[in-house]
Write a protein that binds this DNA or RNA. Sequence first.
DNA 1: TCAATTGTTGACCCATTGGTCAGTTTTCTA
DNA 2: TAGAAAACTGACCAATGGGTCAACAATTGA
Lengths: 204, 204
Amino acid sequence: MVRQHGRATGMKLTKISAIRRKELRQAAFQVLQQEGMAGATLEKVATHAGASKGIVLHYFRNKQELFEHAMREANLALSEAVSARLRQATTPYERLEAVIEGNFEARFFQPSICHAWLSLCAEVPREPQLARIQTVIHARMRSNLMSALVHLLPRAECEAVALSITTLIDGLWLRAGLQSEGLSRDIALAQMRDYLDHRLPRRG
Amino acid sequence: MVRQHGRATGMKLTKISAIRRKELRQAAFQVLQQEGMAGATLEKVATHAGASKGIVLHYFRNKQELFEHAMREANLALSEAVSARLRQATTPYERLEAVIEGNFEARFFQPSICHAWLSLCAEVPREPQLARIQTVIHARMRSNLMSALVHLLPRAECEAVALSITTLIDGLWLRAGLQSEGLSRDIALAQMRDYLDHRLPRRG
DNA sequence: TCAATTGTTGACCCATTGGTCAGTTTTCTA
DNA sequence: TAGAAAACTGACCAATGGGTCAACAATTGA
């Protein structure tokens, strides 16, 4: 809905405004992929979006706000991918798969994207806004997993397994961001399957 | 001559030179803990070590080299902790535990340290030196794990399990660096144990 | 003891960058 | 279609930070 998050004001939200903001958020994330947080300058973001530096600060209070929105935007895409898969899933196990496979879709699980993500994560401890977003992301991940796990495992184990799955996903993303050759999607998915096969009770 | 990069263990090494370098490496890592890579300026590192900016660049070519050494230093500590535990271990299972518990020793597994580590990781894709160090770290981790796993599992599964363990450790560190309250050591260790209990064949 | 080496400092340079602003162009609307 | 509002630009500013350098202090060793 954009409505540029709360910032109160009635905010008419001209079309152009919405479009430019989105362009800039995306440009910011793309620059992040190539340059990391250190090299992600306002000028580069502007250039990347085919605009001038001035306009970036016209739409975003400052650098932090820009990258905060970039993080939201990037997460939204991933989040929607998972939701879409979740909608197709009928059984608990399928819902588990939906969450996992959504997180490893080819268009997301790429070294440069993982790297951008890593850069954002590294800022989390010093940027309360980013921390909040991160919290939300983790909460949703947990919730998605739990809703499936409670039907597959004794209640007492669900929490731990949900955390393990999240941890594995994070760890694999980290690895993919670290190794330039990247960790292949197949290996990542195989890892996740291996975990589920051994941790979940046998089933048909 | 400084005999840079300690590697060639020749170790003539003026005393003062060796000491200063170590102080600076450590100061660099500490600043990283508090400020992240963005805020880790040469001036701050110098101040933190009770010296002037000039001296930092007297001992290290440039900022990259300084933080490269900081990463080496930090890793060395962790690495030695694992080695020490490994030396005490007799059975393969104990060796596994040594690696895991070494990676979660209380003095290492702290939010600020995990955070510093995260900051370093975020630079890896753009800093070939850091990438090399990271590669070495992963290689040693894998090797340590494999030497234990081959006695506990069919050969074909070892590689995957070693990767899973590494991934879990990385993921838990990441999480600890992200959440300010941090992930408690107990939970982290419980996670690892839970994984091993389900992935390794039953044993006495 | 006296040079030579090493350690150390602080001033200085320069490129970069986040952010401001005054003013110009485009778009919207009455 | 005029004028208000929004979009947009580029120049400018102040601060920061990496890196250089010349000079000074301490240490060493012959």
